[in-house]
């Protein structure tokens, strides 16, 4: 018996297909709008910054603001030193805090308090962190230092790392923990050998994004690390950073200083980019190894 199939062609011109066309058009427009500032910033910085950028720029000392040419060696050193120290402080502490929140504290009173404080801390403007370090460390010790900058950045990174760790651990199914307990392992063993490895890719990418973000912070560093024109690889004594140098040089009326600011901006973008790539590669490698998620 034959079945009447009827008209299967897509209807045109009715209300639903018009709404579909409008929605599709809006989404395409948004994609383009979002791309415009990103592409503009990137191309502009590359265009203006590449004039001076190069190995010499990355290694030579900072000249006086009036002279042209020169480099940002001390600022590269300062950014790597200060961000590196901030990472060494905040990542271990933050991961341990995240483990506490998800594996031990859960909904206990101290855990809930810590969670609220962490959320509040995430919203604190970065300059306030700088001010805090300035009053509590710089004024008391009467010295500007890279350490002060590292502490300010660590305070900014800490809540991000705590919450990233907690969220990633929460995604690890409890079935895995029960499986581990049922084999006779203690809580610490279960966390160390099952929960943490399963959450590691996510924790690493969260931490590296926090690092990339901190590397570009200017406000908290401005008044706690001071200034130097020679590389200072020590945590004590005045130091400088790329973000601070961009601010100082860009506000000068001299062409040479402005060129240095653009090249420093390019350097900072490349550092952040390198961290992002590293984050992706590391989590991809770890995910492949464990086959998780």
């Amino acid at each position: 018996m034959a079945i009447t199939v009827g008209d299967l062609t897509r209807p045109r011109g009715n209300a639903r297909s018009i709404r579909d066309a409008i929605a599709t058009g809006l989404m395409a427009t948004s994609v383009v709008l979002v791309m415009i500032p990103l592409v503009l910033v990137l191309t502009y910085v590359i265009e203006r910054g590449s004039a001076l950028f190069g190995w010499r720029f990355l290694t030579s000392d900072i000249p006086t603001t009036r002279s042209s040419g020169g480099g940002m060696g001390p600022a590269v050193a300062g950014t790597l030193l200060i961000t590196g120290t901030a990472t060494a402080i905040s990542v271990p502490l933050g991961v341990m805090g995240g483990i506490y929140l998800n594996e031990y504290g859960r909904n206990s009173r101290p855990a809930v308090m810590l969670r609220v404080l962490t959320d509040v801390m995430t919203g604190v403007p970065s300059i306030v962190m700088g001010l805090f370090v300035y009053t509590f460390l710089v004024l008391r010790t009467q010295s500007l230092s890279g350490m002060a900058g590292a502490l300010a950045l660590a305070a900014l990174m800490l809540p991000v790392v705590i919450r990233a760790t907690e969220e990633m651990l929460r995604l690890v199914p409890d079935d895995l923990r029960f499986g581990s307990f049922a084999l006779g392992s203690r809580r610490a063993t279960t966390i160390w050998r099952v929960a943490l490895p399963a959450a590691l890719p996510g924790i690493i990418s969260g931490a590296l994004l926090a690092i990339a973000r901190a590397a570009g912070e200017t406000a908290p560093l401005l008044f706690v690390i001071g200034i130097t024109s020679k590389p200072n690889w020590s945590l004590s004594g005045t130091n400088t950073a790329l973000s601070v140098q961009i601010f100082r040089n860009a506000t000068q009326p001299f062409e040479g200083a402005q060129q240095r600011a653009w090249a420093a901006a390019l350097t900072l973008i490349l550092i952040a980019f390198a961290f992002t790539i590293l984050a992706r590669l590391l989590s991809a490698a770890l995910t492949r190894r464990s086959g998780a998620f």
Partner: peptide, 20 residues
Amino acid sequence: PVVVRRRIGMVFQKPNPFPK
């Protein structure tokens, strides 16, 4: 309980191999 669980093993409703 940890020692107990080494003597008394368990298999769960949903297979739960570790991501290893």
